[in-house]
Amino acid sequence: MSENAVEVINVSMRFNLERERVNSLKEYIIKLLRKKIDYEEFFALKDVSFKIVKGDSFAIVGNNGSGKSTILKIISGIFKPTAGQVILNGSIAPLIELGAGFDMELTAKENVFLNGAVLGYSKKFMHQKYKDIIEFAELYDFEDVPLKNFSSGMVARLGFSIATVVRPDVLIVDEILSVGDQGFQEKCEKRLNEMTSNGTTLILVSHSIEQVKKICKNAIWLENGKLMASGPVPEVCEAYARG
């Protein structure tokens, strides 16, 4: 019987949205102290459950606002769910937001070591992997340039290269492959396929159904925070396309 890398059990996520308009910080603080701020509850996720087997390439599809990024942040430990739980087996490398863990004032080279430290890698290890990171990201001519002068695609390439320089047990990728030219996207897809072939579990969010079909085996479809379908990618994508 296959072991699960991730188990999401009856997860719900509630946010409180302010219903009224407040014109100034002073007014907001006064209303807050008097407990007169009126909130409306919004559920980004409602009682969602699914399992991801170790070594699977797993996609989460859905329209904007469906809860895709929220569930990724819960799995990554960034958010704590309002209800339910997530069981994670192994190390995790989340690649969710462009530039997360980077200092835009520092150079690409300095950020490699900074981001490596954030991910828990030693300086010695990052020295050993530095050349591979820069070459994969195709930034050898820009290693001494501050990231604030980079395009979003260049930042994405650097982030992806650092996150995949090792083989984490679970790799989470949120829309990052949509940034960059076709050649680099294909190179990323090849690396992801190599990682899953070697046992890494991939969780991918992408608006590109074609990309999902190329990379992933199984998927879920979220709509307004609810689980609408789960199973093999062709079946889930067909259900999602039918709406």
Rank of each mutant, 00 (worst) to 15 (best):
E40S: 15
E40I: 11
E41Y: 10
F43I: 00
F43Y: 15
L45T: 01
L45G: 00
K46E: 02
K46D: 00
D47C: 08
D47W: 05
D47E: 08
S49I: 06
F50H: 08
I52S: 00
I52G: 01
K54M: 04
K54A: 09
K54E: 09
K54N: 02
D56R: 05
F58T: 05
I60L: 06
I60G: 01
I60K: 01
V61Y: 00
V61A: 10
N63A: 14
N63P: 04
N64A: 07
G65R: 07
G67V: 01
S69Y: 05
S69C: 06
S69A: 06
T70G: 10
T70E: 07
I71D: 02
S76V: 07
S76T: 05
I78R: 07
G84T: 06
Q85W: 04
Q85S: 15
V86K: 04
V86D: 09
I87C: 07
L88I: 15
N89A: 12
I92Y: 02
A93F: 06
P94A: 12
I96E: 01
I96F: 04
I96R: 03
L98W: 00
A100D: 05
A100V: 14
A100E: 12
A100M: 13
F102C: 13
F102E: 10
D103C: 10
M104L: 12
E105D: 15
E105Q: 13
E105G: 07
L106D: 08
T107R: 10
A108L: 13
K109W: 12
N111A: 13
N111Q: 12
V112H: 11
V112G: 11
F113H: 02
N115C: 06
G116M: 09
G116V: 10
V118E: 00
G120R: 06
Y121Q: 08
Y121S: 04
S122I: 04
S122A: 07
F125W: 14
M126W: 11
H127W: 10
Q128A: 06
K129G: 01
K129P: 00
K129S: 13
K131M: 15
